[in-house]
Amino acid sequence: MPIYFLKRVLGLIPLFIGITFISFLVIHLAPGSPVDAKGEFNPKMTLQAREKLRELYGLDRPLLEQYGQWTKKIIRFDFGNSFVDGEKVTSKIGKAVPVTLSISVLTLLCVLAAGIGLGVFGAVHEGSRTDRWLTFLALAGFSVPTFWISLLLMNAFGVQLRLLPVSGLYSVNFDDLNAWEKAVDIARHLVLPVAVASITGVAGISRYMRNSLLNELKQDYVRTARAKGLPEKRVLYHHALKNALLPIVTILGLSVPGLLGGSVIFESIFSIPGMGRLFFNSVFARDYPVIMGILVLGAFLTLLGNLLADLTYSVVDPRIRLK
């Protein structure tokens, strides 16, 4: 087992180098450079000033050399400073991660609660009118373009009804509030973003849940349990549901890297300073160190997720190890 583990981890290293190298290549080959994005279209930005910037960032050196430099620093966990404002890349990402993460986790909880609920209901009442309607609604939620539904809800709840704040994470006078008011303030700001993000996610989970539970209910052990005369509730919740939840857990595992991804569109509409916007702005500003930082984080999480999944399987099913 330790050898298998070691082999798997070592196998990730070339993959990791491949990913970072391709990223490095792609962003440096893309036209435009941090220098242009910085000067905007300023008639006073002289050519010499731009050349100065290029030298400062080391952009005048060959690409391979730049990659070598970058790798050397990464090994010491030094991601460098942003070209845009000189802030440390780690601190920039460090600020965006909690924001995106908390919204993703809240969303995930909502999606799970609603999705599992809907799925179980659907499986139990398979084919009923309510089942069909709920399936339809979940699917409808999945089918709406995010920014359209966001604007509609912001307009309805924010502007027309004045029930919820339109955008942002806090009110402008947040610092003057007491602890309780602060909590309420944040909660109110989170309602719409989390709702919108959840609406699009419920369909997937509820479908998996429904199918998985339906599948379990056809198994022999359920038939046996029923034959034994166990109450239906017990059969359902004690036996079948437990097993039916397993695939859901797998899906959760796979969604871990996604939790940090964030979505530009969603974050732009709601003015949320999360990972999606950080990444989008960095790409547009050609802020190479930040782009690389985020890609490395993403790649790391994805590879970690895959590794964990593999290892779990190998624990469950020793045959995989032998291959």
């Binding site: 391709i22 990223s23 792609v26 962003i27 994805t302």
Partner: peptide
């Protein structure tokens, strides 16, 4: 796997 590691949006934008 490498392709899946990139955010789709990054690829598209590049």
């Amino acid at each position: 796997n490498i392709m899946l590691c990139f955010p789709v949006f990054f690829l598209i934008l590049s």
